[in-house]
Design a binder for these strands. Sequence first.
DNA 1: TTTCTGACTCGAA
DNA 2: CTTCGAGCCAGAA
Length: 109
Amino acid sequence: MKSETLSFFEKVYDVAKLIPYGKVTSYGAIAKYLGAGKSARIVGYAMNGSPGKDVPAHRVVNRKGLLTGKHHFEGTNLMQQLLESEGVEVVDNQIQDLDSVYWDPAKEL
DNA sequence: TTTCTGACTCGAA
DNA sequence: CTTCGAGCCAGAA
């Protein structure tokens, strides 16, 4: 089993799994928490392997609360449905009242 | 081996 | 005010 070779992906999955119910975070927030800062894109890319990792990728959105990765989910509004299901207000692929549902790992952890 | 793209973000002009 | 470019890491061709 690997060991300290904790790849960026592994860390991303770890943090993403810590996202509480009804909360959301951004790629950059996770990246910054990992110490990458500008590797937000890698976080999103890592989400490609979210399936099978029990990672709630639907709780991860971009900095503006926009469901940029919704296209990677089944259907076209599944991501929005999941978020609304958790009590997150989403309109037009954009999270409303983002500050109220925003979960920053760097602050919470 | 090099090159390119990607679920992003920020700063500068 | 708007628009553009650069940087980050990883995987595929």
